[in-house]
């Protein structure tokens, strides 16, 4: 599926278009379920079983296991839903940002305090 947004490549930026919405539907649906405390507890008690219940692909399950944010985005995750998963495992948006940019969290925060990346 070719979308008009693919004609507007923006470096370092993933556009959540129709194809990604298809690829990531199960993953995002799992993360959406984390609005419930009961579901968060169920995930923590057996993460891989919870991923299988939502029919995540092998690649997505592996990315959940290795906490690979860019891998999850590449396989269709949307950051708003992934943030709910991040919350469960103790990763806030600055932890997620640090991992994606290859910085330590301190470096990432310091970069933001200087006015962010340009």
């Amino acid at each position: 599926m070719k979308t008009s947004l693919e004609n507007h490549k923006i470096p370092g930026t993933i556009i959540f278009d129709g194809q990604r919405a298809i690829d990531g539907y199960a993953l995002n649906k799992m993360c959406f379920s984390f609005n419930s405390a009961e579901n968060r507890a169920a995930f923590l008690s057996d993460p891989d079983a919870y991923c299988r219940k939502f029919n995540l692909t092998d690649k997505q399950r592996e990315a959940v296991k290795s906490r690979d944010v860019l891998g999850l985005l590449e396989s269709g995750g949307h950051i708003y839903y992934l943030a709910k998963w991040g919350g469960i495992i103790g990763l806030g948006v600055q932890d997620l940002g640090a991992q994606q940019t290859g910085m330590t969290v301190e470096e990432f925060k310091a970069m933001l305090a200087r006015g962010g990346a340009h």
């Binding site: 470096p11 860019l70 992934l82 940019t101």
Partner: peptide
């Protein structure tokens, strides 16, 4: 206003 949470451009700001 400006912000980006995802991708390798995370932390982007444009004052």
């Amino acid at each position: 206003l400006s912000h980006q949470l995802d991708g390798t451009r995370a932390g982007f700001v444009n004052k």
